[in-house]
Design a protein around this nucleic acid. Structure first.
Lengths: 218, 218
DNA sequence: ATCTATTCGGAGGATATCTCCGTTTTCCGG
DNA sequence: CCGGAAAACGGAGATATCCTCCGAATAGAT
């Protein structure tokens, strides 16, 4: 790794070559692209790649910086919107797009959320914080439901991003999923008494899971 | 494969052993568990495993049959509910639970939807059809939004199932994501004029994506 | 021009997927 | 009960990926 000191010229050059090759490979094959292949197409040895980027996540994180710059500038544009609801909707669209940058990217983010050691973890926290800003503003404005938590919302976008590419390939409208996320699948005017049915069902579900697969302890 | 004729005694026995071992391995390590390891713990050679189940999906599909039986019986219970809304909510919970049976299962399903050759593809179609039943009924009842398409709803559940385990591990309430899916993150009483903002944002988003990554043509 | 710290590159060990084919097992007809 | 053909087994091995280790090469300071 290059620590805090200045790195040698060849090191700097190779780093750039690797990033370029990785960007192409990830864009083409998704984040599971072979790293040895990336090294090969960058014209360096595997050792060089792993010295610069110890894990796939480090490499990914570096590639996302570029995107992140765009995302943050769009955050500002969205934040400048006068309508809190439109601002939130806009941010959500930007966020989902960012999370769909590479095929399989949501999986990396989700993994990063359970392992704080991942270099993507900080990014996650940042994104949740920003989401919270937009969400809070919309909630204060009465445009978003008060019981929605920023973490839950972020997870939901991750889910939407996860299916995003496949929805397109399947022929359905990608926005249809976004719309469900924003407005729900239930109608607005329903009474609230069916709410507990979800809990009930979920509880019953655990019981089912138990009896169905619980035959192997630990 | 065992074609239509009866298979030999040892073949039948090994098939059972493999399924048992695979169930344990998938439950423990998720659907990416090593198949050679499954074969080893089943006490058979790799060749035997691959002769019985040519691909990981074939094996997975067979393992899901058991779950599917439970799911279908629960479908009937849910369908018997008098309230269309509660019925839909219940089905959605059952479905999500089914799709969370193994860690990483949603990825397989999503893959199956773009490759019709996968043995899971039929299952997908079945699940979408059932979802459509519940959805249509709720829509006729005014309990679900008319513009929601069954495919989009299914994709949304896949997204929710994808993050399900991680939400739990993260410490947030798993139901929070379900709630967002059902009711949306926006408030009920908003006017509809922000609707087009989504489209607008999406369009603008594509433009962003273009300029950000469009440097490598095909 | 020399020397040293840095960086490189690729051989190689570990693990996983999937195939091929010689060997073993089942079970049917005699 | 007993061949023998068909069915099934199993594991060696070809290929791919990840990641490490260390002798060789190189940049850049003196």
């Amino acid at each position: 790794m290059q620590a805090q000191t200045v790195q040698r010229a060849d090191a700097r050059r190779n780093r750039g070559l690797i990033l370029e090759a990785a960007k192409a490979a990830f864009a083409r094959d998704g984040i599971d692209a072979s790293l040895d292949e990336v090294a090969r197409s960058a014209g360096v040895g595997p050792g060089t790649l792993y010295r610069h980027f110890p894990t796939r996540e480090h490499l990914l994180c570096e590639l996302l910086h570029e995107r992140q710059t765009v995302l943050l500038s769009n955050r500002d544009k969205a934040a400048a919107l006068s309508c809190a609801k439109t601002a939130l909707l806009t941010w959500m669209a930007e966020l989902k797009d960012y999370l769909s940058a590479f095929n399989g990217l949501p999986r990396s983010f989700v993994k990063a959320m359970e392992a704080q050691t991942s270099p993507l973890a900080v990014t996650c926290q940042t994104l949740i914080s920003i989401t919270e800003e937009f969400l809070s503003r919309a909630q204060a404005d009465g445009a978003a439901r008060p019981s929605v938590a920023p973490q839950a919302l972020f997870f939901s976008v991750l889910g939407a991003a996860f299916v995003h590419d496949k929805v397109r390939e399947y022929g359905a409208a990608p926005e249809s999923v976004d719309e469900i996320l924003a407005y729900g699948y239930l109608a607005d005017d329903s009474t609230k008494n069916a709410h507990e049915s979800i809990e009930h069902s979920a509880t019953r579900h655990s019981a089912i899971k138990h009896s169905a697969i619980g035959s192997n302890p630990k």
